[in-house]
Amino acid sequence: MDSIFGICGKDWVVVACDTAVNRSIFTLKHDDDKILSLNTNKVLACSGEQTDRYQFSNYIQKNLELQAYLTGHELSIEASAQYMRTELAKALRKAPYQVNCLIGGFDHLNGEAKLFWMDYFGTLQQVTKGAHGYAGYFVNSVLDNNYQVNMTLEDGINTLKKCIVELKTRFIMNQPTFIGKIVTKEGIRVINLTE
């Protein structure tokens, strides 16, 4: 029931996420950061059961770090996404990770930002905007209508804020706080999307 969604421009990408951890009828935690910064130019937002989310995102992060140590090169955004897909697909027929992900990042090689959408079956797709879970039913249309080629980062952030307003007016779940992470040439920046 986690809400994660993101939008991607030419040289920026923003991923947003609610911060609640729910179990049965409780909210266990109100301030959980579900967006992991993989390095200085890549973020991985996961939704799903807490344990799978933790296990998968940390496994990926550590392995990407190891890869960077061994080769001296950071993987590109697409290569990292493909690696995550492979690991998810490998696990699918054994002990599947129930995680849906958005992978966002900035490629220093060609100066482009990229956003990838991936579900727990291992469907991987590069997108300009994406959402997971129930939030997708509400948010996808808002993203579609507000997206423009060459839109600025400010427009992107405003679009995400519109998404959150929509979720707060129509979605039954109580998700009081949202966190966002912006990836640009300068690195990763955290923003509070609920003012």
Partner: peptide, 15 residues
């Protein structure tokens, strides 16, 4: 920390 049989493990202030 809160831990349960679904292997949920969360650090928190109040449970």
């Amino acid at each position: 920390y809160y831990i349960d049989n679904d292997a949920t493990r969360v650090k928190g202030r109040l449970f």
